[in-house]
């Protein structure tokens, strides 16, 4: 069971009201997501990708817009790495640089 640091960005930060969080007693990325969504159910309405230690985790399709959700958010995936103590996981809404 690991304790991981969670980072929120963009529109997700408006929902959580904070930029960082902690999830404890988790053994998979899926469990971490479940805990986060239980705390902030409105996150389910936002498209996002997940990064682990600043590396994007694979996702079936790129997200292109907050406004027109086209593909579902990542679901627990058995190919995802097992989280370790101190890992940094971020929920990343569609990028909008430039």
């Amino acid at each position: 069971m690991a304790t991981v640091k969670i980072l929120y960005f963009g529109s997700i930060r408006d929902i959580t009201g904070c930029s960082t969080d902690t999830v404890t007693d988790c053994s998979t990325i899926g469990e971490i997501l479940e805990q986060i969504i239980k705390r902030y159910p409105a996150i389910e309405g936002i498209r996002y990708q997940i990064s682990l230690n600043r590396q994007l985790l694979p996702h079936p399709a790129p997200q292109t817009s907050n406004l027109k959700p086209q593909t579902p958010n990542p679901k627990p995936d058995t190919r995802y790495p097992i989280p370790a103590d101190g890992d940094e996981i971020a929920l990343l809404p569609p990028f909008a640089g430039g």
């Binding site: 963009g10 809404p93 990028f95 640089g97 430039g98």
Partner: peptide, 14 residues
């Protein structure tokens, strides 16, 4: 380069 920035850079705007 600009297309990659739009696609890959973790930046958000309000």
């Amino acid at each position: 380069c600009v297309e990659l920035i739009k696609e890959k850079l973790p930046v958000w705007k309000k």
